[in-house]
Nucleic acid binder design. Structure first.
Length: 944
RNA sequence: GGGCGAGUGGCGCAGUGGUUAGCGCAGAUGCUUUACACGCAUUUGGUCGGGGGUUCGAAUCCCUCCUUGCCCACCA
């Protein structure tokens, strides 16, 4: 046992033990150790962005994972917590582009694709380690020997393999669709990457003339007048009596102005989705720039095709062809007309409105708020755009839905299961291609123009090599593709698809692609890690990526592993500041965890975060919580110092004969704490576990038990003292272990400092609390041997009542908290030997006399307790009126309680219907209150 | 428009039918008590969002309304 300093200094402790753990291989998972008796426990980390910095969300998330991992190790499991990072396509590319612009005034095009990618890799090597080191500072017990990156060569192979496989299953296809286009990043986005935000703008009403009926005007409402040049029709509801008769006629599109009138005639069509309540009931249809409009055109085309003889505008189906009037960067192109051409889209809106006004067509312009889709990353409004992209029809949807609905996989809290289910039953195909450079390149090659003759193409398609894939789509103009993780044998004849895959198209493979999966059945069967640790046990993540990541991992798990990827998903809350605002860089309300760690210690940060993180609720984070965590660690430190000051070696056996009532009580409370904490952790109720530990350690152990124990240590009985130390060692060694998953550093330091490590069986190459066994509740035998029965609690309550009331008297009569005050107790029964001294100490009193025949002077302050009447004689200082007032207040309170209970008992149906135990309890309660009332009244009588 | 949460003392939260509704922070008062002032003791704050119902008994179950947060949805 080494002496420990007065205040806990985390800085000198944390790095030391982290290095120790890593050097001893404590975090390293070994699949060969997994047996029935030593089951596997695994978590894969939600990979942070490779260039990211640790923020409070990571702290919450990874502390939880660390608690789960460390607890599992203490339960004797073989634990794999697999770490790694994500290449984060757009985010990383944007960062590097920004740096390039800032430092060299260049764009990525100035460098070219190859050179630019080199720069990204350099950037990654420079910044990629930061967040990993930050996780180490937090104490995360990840198996760093298995760190993975989504762009590792093996991982990239998995991504391509999956693409090829899904392609061959017919689930991946290329097509020209309406996609969410980000004009800033100039790439397509998935639906999940679009965030709807209310935007203040204007609703414009303008009128158009019906060509067949000059003088008849229709009014159209729109928020996007700049897209008028792209209108190919106007739609009305066929049931709308105002307009139905006009279907089949035409209107004159007002823009572009310079086009001749006959080129601007567009049909009036009917579509049931037009809401005649909304706006004017007339909808402009812009199929190239609005998803709903595109769909209307598809419906109309189909309808017209099937009912050709009844369609008045059969020959005008060409009007259903979308007109693209915008460039990829969000500026207007030639088709938008001379006035708008070259203008940025919002500038074009203004100009379009001006032109309408000049023609006398603008009727109204009123402020209007509507939802606009924004690119989540670039934070600019997305543009619905027709473009050719790769799409995925989600695989294994049915089984993925079932596994959560039927409970093979559990969500915590389970309400997220509904959200998951709802999304899954409404999913659209996933746009997986991105027009970026940083990412996994689509493993598809197209023949260069003229590289092959028709016959050659035919031969290749019919050849054994199934990398040659025929293409049936006519519009593409390509009849052959090479789809494989290997480039074609004659690369000179081919061009690889320039697009890369959505980052999530790699992340969704994370649970198995990190464990040596190759997609080859024979070699996967030999992959020890995969066999031992897949499916993983728990996944800990935020509900904000339930669609992006969780749902997709489940589908990939079933599709490629034939099994679910994890058995439990714990959804954390979102970290907010103490005012409930989301943490963000712009608000500047996001504290740097590393600063907090250096100020307060990693354990303090973990404690503060977890204490305020109830199951499934958002976490309102306040730096005060971390301060509290630091105070807590210091308290723990000093509780151990107190034990050390009593001296002696670590005590083993407790002698049941020497246990005091306080010893028995603290052992019972320990037992309760073990059960509560174990249950709380098993059900992912981390805040409950922390609160229970807090209560047990601080209130019960320190504030009560340790204070009471001083009576023994100040006394002379050495055997009794030694036994007291044994109890303390027993409690502290259990306590430290229960705290370890939450507070790894300080518990390890104390485990050694206190000498408890000496009891540890040697394994894993070093003695560490990490592999100490999680405490078990006391057995019935132990409870019997130590006399832990019901009387223990009853006596403790009575003592607590006496001490609290005695302290109260001291405060009220200004005796002060120091070793002052002379009490006299008129005991109600026999007190155990030494009990009076314990009580004196807890009262911080100069003395506590026992006198069964005590006759107090009039007006002596009194506390009436189950253990007897406690008096605080005050020489000449008695204020009879004050004491009377105090006691009278008590009487009022007690009478109110008696009234309540009597009312209940007086209800005839109460006695009939209530369980006997409850009835008995109420009767007892009434009796107790009545005794108290009589005593208090007697005390008042005695005053006069 | 649909779905899911939340409303308990100044603040943050526990408490899902049965004692006098708990805890932490903040506040007040007193204490250099010999583990810890990053501490100790005492103490002030609550008709549990409103209304109705079920029950012997409701913060807790049901209905309804109000407030608030989040997610989903092509209303131009």
């Amino acid at each position: 046992m080494t002496e420990i300093p007065k205040a806990y200094e985390p800085q000198s402790v944390e790095d030391k033990w982290y290095d120790f753990w890593v050097k001893q291989g404590c975090f390293t998972a070994d699949p060969t150790r997994v047996t029935d008796k030593r089951p596997a426990y695994s978590i894969v980390i939600p990979p942070p962005n490779v260039t990211g910095m640790l923020h409070m969300g990571h702290v919450l998330n990874n502390t939880i994972q660390d608690i789960l991992s460390r607890k599992a190790r203490m339960d004797g499991k073989e634990v794999l917590w697999l770490p790694g990072t994500d290449h984060a396509g757009i985010a990383t590319q944007v960062q590097v582009e920004k740096a390039l612009k800032r430092d060299e005034k260049k764009t990525k095009h100035d460098l070219g694709r190859e050179e630019f990618l080199k720069r990204v890799w350099t950037w990654k090597d420079k910044h990629g380690g930061i967040i990993i080191n930050q996780l180490k500072k937090l104490g995360c017990s990840c198996d760093w020997t298995r760190e993975r990156f989504t762009m590792d060569p093996e991982y990239s192979r998995c991504v391509q393999k999956v693409f090829v496989e899904l392609y061959k299953k017919g689930l991946i296809y290329r097509g020209k669709r309406m996609v969410n286009w980000c004009p800033a990043s100039q790439t397509a986005l998935s639906d999940e990457e679009v965030e709807m935000k209310p935007q203040k703008g204007f609703m414009y009403h303008f009128k158009v003339e019906v060509a067949e009926a000059p003088g008849t005007w229709l009014t159209i409402a729109t928020t996007r007048p700049e897209t008028i040049p792209g209108d190919t029709a106007v739609a009305v509801n066929p049931k709308d009596p105002r307009y139905a008769h006009l279907i089949g006629q035409h209107i004159v599109r007002p823009l572009p102005i310079e086009l001749p009138r006959e080129q601007k005639l567009i049909p009036i069509i009917g579509d049931a989705h037009v809401d005649f309540e909304f706006g004017t009931g007339v909808l402009k249809v812009t199929p190239a720039h609005d998803k709903a409009d595109f769909e209307i055109c598809q419906r109309i085309t189909k309808w017209a095709g099937s009912r050709i003889e009844r369609t008045p505008f059969t020959d005008e189906l060409s009007f259903m062809e979308p007109i693209e009037i915008m460039n990829a960067d969000g500026t207007m192109n030639d088709l938008a007309g001379a006035d708008l051409k070259g203008l940025e889209r919002f500038k074009a809106r203004k100009v379009a409105v001006e032109r309408l006004g000049e023609q006398g067509l603008l009727i109204e312009e009123k402020p209007y708020e509507n939802n606009v889709g924004f690119s989540q990353r670039a934070d600019v409004p997305i543009e619905p755009r027709l473009s050719e992209q790769w799409f995925l029809k989600y695989p294994s949807v049915e089984v993925s839905t079932k596994c959560v609905a039927e409970g093979q996989m559990k969500f915590h809290p389970d309400r997220w299961a509904k959200v998951y289910d709802h999304w899954l039953s409404n999913i659209q195909d996933w746009c997986i291609s991105r027009q970026l450079w940083w990412g996994h390149r689509v493993p598809v090659w197209y023949p260069k123009p003229g590289a092959f003759t028709e016959d050659q193409i035919q031969n290749l398609i019919e050849s054994e090599n199934d990398a040659y894939q025929s293409v049936t789509s006519i519009e593409e103009g390509v009849s052959l593709r090479w789809v494989s993780i290997e480039p074609p044998p004659d690369p000179a004849n081919w061009i690889q698809d320039p697009d890369v895959l959505d980052t999530w198209f790699s992340s969704w493979l994370w649970p198995f692609a990190t464990m040596g999966w190759t997609g080859d059945k024979a070699s996967d069967a030999n992959a020890q890690t995969l066999r031992a640790f897949y499916p993983t046990t728990d996944l800990v993540t935020g509900p904000d990526i339930i669609f992006f990541w969780v749902a997709r991992m489940i589908m990939a798990g079933y599709e490629f592993m034939g099994d679910l990827p994890f058995k439990n998903v714990y959804f954390t809350g979102i970290i907010r500041d103490k005012q409930g605002r989301k943490m963000s860089k712009t608000l500047g309300n996001s504290p740097d965890p590393l600063v907090l760690i250096s100020q307060y210690g990693a354990d303090a940060l973990r404690f503060g975060t977890m204490r305020s993180a109830p199951l499934g609720q958002d976490v309102l984070f306040d730096e005060k919580d971390v301060e509290l965590g630091r105070n807590f660690c210091n308290k723990l430190w000093n509780a151990c110092r107190f034990r050390q000051m009593q001296g002696g070696e670590v005590q083993g056996e407790m002698d049941a004969k020497l246990l005091s009532s306080d010893d028995r009580w603290i052992l019972l409370r320990l037992d309760l704490a073990i059960r509560e904490v174990t249950d709380a952790l098993a059900s992912y109720n981390f805040a409950t576990a922390v609160q229970t530990l807090y209560r047990f350690f601080w209130s019960e152990y320190c504030d009560w038990y340790v204070e009471a124990s001083k009576a023994a240590f100040f006394g002379q009985d050495t055997a009794f003292k030694a036994n007291k130390v044994a109890v303390i060692d027993f409690v502290l060694s259990h306590l430290l272990r229960m705290f370890h998953p939450l507070l790894p550093f300080i518990t390890e330091e104390l485990w050694h400092g206190m000498g408890y490590s000496a009891d540890m069986p040697e394994e894993q190459g070093g003695k560490t609390i990490m592999f100490a066994r999680w405490p078990k509740p006391l057995s019935d035998d132990e409870k019997e041997a130590w006399g832990l029965d019901d009387t223990v609690e009853t006596l403790a309550n009575a003592k607590s009542e006496l001490v609290t009331q005695g302290r109260n008297l001291k405060t009220q009569f200004n005796i002060g908290a120091g070793k002052k005050g002379k009490f006299t107790l008129k005991p109600a029964g026999n007190l155990a030997p030494g009990e009076a001294e314990v009580l004196r100490l807890l009262l911080s009193a100069e003395s506590l006399d026992l006198d069964p025949h005590y006759a107090p002077k009039k007006g002596t302050p009194t506390a009436l307790t189950k253990l007897g009447e406690l008096y605080l004689p005050l020489d000449g200082l008695i204020d009879v009126d004050a004491e009377r007032a105090r006691l009278t207040k008590d009487v009022t309170k007690v009478q109110a309680e008696i009234e309540k209970v009597e009312q209940k008992l007086g209800n005839p149906s109460f006695a009939q219907k209530v369980p006997p135990a409850v009835l008995e309890e109420h009767r007892q309660r009434l009796a107790d209150w009545q005794v108290k009332l009589a005593q208090t009244k007697a005390a008042i009588e005695a005053l006069s």
